[in-house]
Amino acid sequence: MTPADSAIEVRLRVNGLDREIDVDPCRLLVEVLRDDLGLTGAHVGCDSSQCGACVVLLNGLAAKACTVLAAQCNESEVTTIEGLSSGSELHRVQAAFQEHHALQCGFCTPGMIMTTVDLLTTNPSPTEAEITEALHGNLCRCTGYVNIVRAVLSLAAHSSSEGGEG
């Protein structure tokens, strides 16, 4: 049997950059992103895969980085919130969150945005019900989700502009 705690080599492409790191097999992707790669945009809000503050794109699909071992991501492509846009340019989901005041404390926001990016990639014109279902695994305590849903709805392909005033 292989001795426990022996580090294994993992090759990743993170936000477009190739990375080779040695990790303890029990380390979670979110720990490696935050502690080894300095990408602290993905947050840890719970220990039971419920809150979604840690969501990143793993090979293009939303994944809870707290429920994936870094070892499982060998040869994978990871996009974090930091890789979504560069310079002063914003990704359109980020811009919509800004525009619609879809965040308050901002702790859940990176996960919300990454989940939304995944949603719009697979379903460019989600209905309100589809949006709230897609966000089922992303908890927010500040906004009551009202402006988050409004922001995502504004990006739906069928949406002409902002929804009605509350």
């Binding site: 602290t40 993905a42 980020q94 800004q98 901002g106 702790f107 926001t109 990176p110 945005i113």
Partner: peptide, 12 residues
């Protein structure tokens, strides 16, 4: 305050 937070540049 949003600009930093939506880009993952928040400092908690």
């Amino acid at each position: 305050e949003h600009f930093r937070l939506i880009r993952g540049d928040g400092r908690f």
